[in-house]
Design a protein around this nucleic acid. Structure first.
Length: 785
DNA sequence: TACACATCCGTTTTT
DNA sequence: CGGATGTGTA
């Protein structure tokens, strides 16, 4: 334990802590009257959740009820009253982002003492920490590698190949999710029910492959994400002495997003909580939206049975949304049967009703939302405070396209993640081998990247040697680079590679790790490979490599950096510029925006057909919770919309409005007329129509001749896109002093790649892209090629 | 080995 | 349609 803990123990006597009045703390600890300042402003329920520190406690925190505040204040309170030192608190979150936020906020409350909170983190980061301390009990050595999903799949592919399993019929991905599922449920290979073990490949290999996979992991000294929980759980179960040690250590436990815990996590917590029994779980059964990846809502529904004598506190005062938004969301979620039941209320009285809007098709939906956004922006609202929340990521494109045309800055949250990009993973593989040569998966990844003439056959031979002699692939390669088992070309290349690694490893001692990274990327020919690549992404990849090296600078050494990225696959996005957010409803959990758009509420899309097919009523309820999460993200304004026609896989489909729309309580909802129908438009929510000069020759019923004609044409698949003419005068003037482009110039666009300008109108360019075809974009989105 | 062509498939996602 | 992945050919 660090000396920080002792500092904290002292505080209250003489050393003032930054945010908390030491006198108050001391007084509190001694049971006197003075009120610690951090309790100010909490409502009675919140306060109870903070002050009920001992014994099991479940806090049911509805959306927008100040959950994070309660969580952080509670931890601060435990520390401030001297009940525990920072190192004796276990605080678990699901995401790194949540962990970071909690750490920051506690830091703001109690100052430097957070430094001592070594056990605040995600389930996985805490799992690694424990597993590194007891690796040998799990058949690993302490420097074990952590595999990400990609590595996992590659390992499984090798196994499948060895068993002659047809990867077409039985994809490695599917096996991976099967195994993940078992791990989520806390099942080691021996414990997988026989019926399920027989569920994969010819002759029911599932269980067998799982067992072999686990063995392989030990051989290559690696753990996958599931193991970070499962192996720790196994250690706890099989080594009571170790379990006791942690039970003693963790005097107070706090779990965020309890509704998202899976069985393994639940068992893990329950074992630990048998020590001091001071476990506080915070969650909201109505926001459980991760059932499809193993979360068990049951954990939260069963809490009082699992922890006899548990207190339950409900936080039902909402500080986020208007009564209308809250009413709409509550009315909807009330249709769910399996829930603990909460009634959110607010003291606010102002607010617009939730708008429901019908659109002719998806393009119109995107167009109208784009216009709304421009209008709000003109009124002075920040784009950062607006979001479009979709059910599935393919829906994002329509909005991106539209915003590119309009020149509305946007950010997509949940795209391909930084550390998952191929070039970043390649670069990391090089560095990992410098740090630990025996990382077979990393070595295999780059042995022929860039191409150096070491083909599959050579690699297979190395594998054979490695296996036969029980050594790592790298060692086998090292040996073979000196014999004549390989063709001359491959052997020379291999020798050169091995020599390079030896050289780099020598250097690693003497130079900063960022410099080492640059040298490795340079000398390995990896950077050059991308420099010679002429695809539109190449430049971006080179930029990513630069960014990677830069981000390494934030860490003291290579090992620290590698450990960090193994667990944190994402890199934080800057929120500096003012941009509209486009993300999935899943990705939006825990966030809030002034204005929220919820497009695509159509049967089959939302609720998603697949959810319904696979999970039936439970699936529907989870979708409904997702809808609830979506609506409750909004502070002041929520607009739900659906399109009557949608192009799915390039086929036009006639869509029905989502059943969730019917379930919204009428009193909180206003149905806006179709923007394109005759009459009545413009009276919806915000002022005058912007579409006077373009209407469609049919109303919003399903039976007009126009509708039927249009439908007929669309089903024939030769419909013209219903994109309206752009209304010049309404364009927001932007980038007036931007660089001017001329017809015929070759330009680069970060989304569409390279293209040639075919027309210029003011700041709007029409560009014929090599890959993406013809698009209209604003010139500021483009650079000269 | 590299590129062209074919084929398949189309939720949600964290660690 | 479009991307990801795989097969086939030069």
């Amino acid at each position: 334990m660090s000396s920080k803990n002792f500092d904290l123990n002292d505080f209250g006597d003489e050393q003032p802590a930054p945010a908390i009045k030491p006198g108050g703390l001391a007084a509190r600890a001694m049971g006197q009257q003075a009120e610690p300042p951090y309790l100010k402003g909490l409502n009675p329920e919140q306060r109870a959740a903070v002050e009920n520190t001992d014994g099991p406690l479940l806090v049911l925190a509805g959306a927008g009820t100040g959950k994070t505040r309660v969580l952080t204040t509670r931890l601060a309170h435990i520390l401030a009253t001297g009940k525990a030192w920072p190192g004796q608190l276990l605080a678990v979150t699901f995401t790194n982002k949540a962990a970071r936020e909690m750490r920051d906020r506690i830091g703001a409350l109690i100052g430097g003492a957070v430094e001592g909170m070594t056990w605040l983190g995600t389930f996985h980061s805490i799992g690694v920490k424990i597993l590194r301390n007891h690796a040998e009990l799990a058949g690993l050595r302490s420097g074990f590698a952590i595999l990400d999903t990609d590595d996992q799949i590659r390992l499984l592919k090798q196994l499948l190949e060895a068993h002659d399993v047809d990867e077409k019929r039985w994809p490695a991905r599917q096996l991976a999710s099967l195994i993940d599922g078992w791990k989520n449920r806390g099942l080691t290979p021996e414990r997988v029910p026989a019926g399920e073990a027989a569920s994969f490949g010819h002759g029911g290999l599932g269980g067998k492959l799982y067992a072999e996979y686990q063995q392989r992991l030990k051989v290559v000294n690696a753990a996958d994400f599931g193991d970070l929980l499962l192996e720790v759980l196994r250690i706890f179960q099989e080594h009571p002495d170790v379990l006791k040690e942690y039970q003693r250590r963790f005097k107070y436990m706090l779990v965020d997003e309890y509704q998202d815990t899976n069985v393994a996590q639940y068992l893990w917590l329950r074992l630990l909580a048998q020590g001091h029994r001071n476990i506080c779980c915070v969650g909201d059964d109505d926001q459980s939206i991760y059932g499809w990846r193993g979360a068990e809502v049951d954990n939260i529904l069963r809490f009082e049975k699992d922890f006899p004598g548990a207190k339950v506190i409900r936080l039902e005062r909402n500080y986020r949304s208007t009564p209308q938004i809250l009413g709409a969301a509550s009315g909807l979620i009330a249709k769910n049967e399996s829930r603990l039941g909460k009634t959110l209320h607010t003291n606010r009285e102002d607010g617009e009703t939730v708008t429901v809007r019908a659109h002719w098709d998806g393009d119109e939906e995107a167009r109208v939302i784009g216009e709304d956004i421009e209008n709000f922006q003109r009124k002075g609202e920040k784009l950062n405070d607006m979001a479009i929340l979709v059910r599935a990521s393919f829906q994002m494109r329509a909005f991106e396209d539209r915003f590119i045309t309009l020149g509305v800055p946007y950010r997509v949250i949940g795209g391909p993640r930084f550390y998952e990009r191929a070039e970043v993973r390649d670069a990391l593989a090089y560095l990992k081998i410098v740090a630990s040569p025996d990382n077979d998966l990393a070595f295999e990844r780059i042995i022929n990247t860039p191409k150096r003439g070491i083909g599959d056959t050579s690699v297979k031979r190395m594998h054979a040697i490695a296996r036969a002699q029980g050594i790592s692939l790298y060692r086998a390669a090292e040996a073979m680079s000196l014999t004549d088992e390989l063709p001359a070309k491959a052997r020379t290349a291999l020798r050169k590679l091995i020599e390079s690694f030896n050289r780099w490893r020598q250097m690693a001692m003497g130079i900063p790790h960022t410099e080492l990274a640059e040298i490795v990327l340079d000398e390995s020919g990896y950077t050059e490979m991308w420099q010679n690549d002429k695809s539109p992404e190449a430049q971006g990849r080179l930029d990513n490599l630069k960014e990677l090296v830069r981000s390494m600078g934030d860490f003291e050494n290579l090992a620290g950096f590698l450990e960090h990225i193994a667990l944190v696959m994402d890199v934080e996005q800057s929120a500096e510029e003012d941009k509209v957010s486009i993300m999935t409803m899943h990705g939006a959990k825990g966030l809030e925006f002034g204005t929220v758009f919820l497009p695509g509420w159509e049967e089959g899309l939302f609720p998603s057909q697949r959810s319904l097919d696979e999970k039936g009523r439970a699936g529907l309820e989870e979708e409904r919770r997702l809808a609830y999460v979506g609506i409750t993200r909004a502070k002041r304004r929520a607009t739900i919309s659906f399109a009557q026609n949608r192009r799915v896989h390039n086929l036009w489909q006639n869509a029905l409005p989502s059943r969730f729309i019917d379930e919204l309580p009428e009193m909180h909802v206003e149905v806006a007329p179709m923007a394109t129908s005759y009459g009545g438009f413009g009276l919806g929510t915000y002022g005058k129509s912007r579409f006077d000069d373009q209407t469609k020759p049919f109303g919003n019923t399903y039976s007009t001749p126009g509708w039927q004609r249009a439908q007929q044409r669309w089903s024939d698949g030769k419909a013209t896109r219903s994109t309206p003419r752009f209304i010049e005068g309404e364009m927001v003037a932007r980038d007036t002093d931007a660089v001017k482009y001329a017809k015929g110039e070759r330009v680069f666009h970060e989304k569409f790649g390279y293209g040639v300008i075919s027309a210029v109108e003011g700041n709007k360019l029409t560009i014929d892209f090599d890959k993406a075809g013809e698009k209209r974009v604003i010139d500021s989105f483009v650079t000269r090629a």
